[in-house]
Amino acid sequence: MSAALILDACLVLLVLAVAVWTIAARETFPAIAGFVSYGLLLAIVWVRLSSVDVALTEAAIGGGATGVLLLGAAARLTDRAGRRPAGIGLRIMAGALCLAITAALAFVILTLPDPAPTLAPQAVAGLPATGVGNPITAVLVAYRGIDTLLEKIVLLLAVIGVWCLTPDDSWGALPAPWGTARQDDAIVLLARLLAPVGVVVGVYIVWVGADDPGGAFQGGTILAAMWLLVMMAGLIAPLPATSRRLRRVLVAGPALFLAVAFAGFAMSGDFLSYPPAYAKWLIKLIEAALTLSIAAMVGVLVIGPAVRKR
């Protein structure tokens, strides 16, 4: 038994243990802490499977953004809502559903022919036409661009959904409690020191995404985290939902993506097709605009709706 196999086995056991612990945790906060650790451990699993792009996304979204969203949701839950445990019937149903999904996935994975069918060679073979060197980026923005486009529209819908939760008399108010209370010096120091570094790292991850693991979603989430950190420190005020500037940034990425997609009819005769000569630059341009939009979307989702002033 090699050292790598022992390491992987330990990792699998750890992931399973954290997953069980997260489900078994009775309080909301420990369950979220478990979920975040689970996401970070899963990121290591993806690295072990040589899927560094997925690992970066899992760490940024599964461990980071979702964890913060859940924490925000838990903080908003009053004693009235959410403290009531689910009934035994609902729990059995949820358990049965999870079991069925696990069994189906296990069946599919275990009955795969050896070697498993793959589109990887085709994905790599098409790379020269796109001009990018990272096949994952090519899949996301070129081969399956329509999925990515729709995904961003869904995110926009989520932002609209969160804004819809604003009470009528608070519309246009600054989302509380961000930046209102007197802030801790430690957070201010962290925001001043970390934010510039984080912005560089976020932009770098988008930029190298063309040829190496990285991309708009991972970089955008890092930028969102830096924006939130600076807001938490009270160094800048959060933008209200009525801010034109914020709305322009939110739609910039999807709008540019759509515009390029329709321009495809004129440039190369089909929706979402890039002319090979400009493919790389168009993809980078779309990624850059998407990054800003994703950062704004994730940030707005975490900030949540404005609440009634007391």
């Binding site: 801790d184 010096d185 430690a186 957070i187 120091l189 962290l190 020191l193 970390l194 570094v197």
Partner: peptide, 16 residues
């Protein structure tokens, strides 16, 4: 260095 920075500030916030 980044882990130190994040760890130290998070601890300060928690302790306060």
């Amino acid at each position: 260095l980044l882990a130190q920075l994040a760890g130290a500030t998070a601890t300060q916030v928690l302790a306060r």
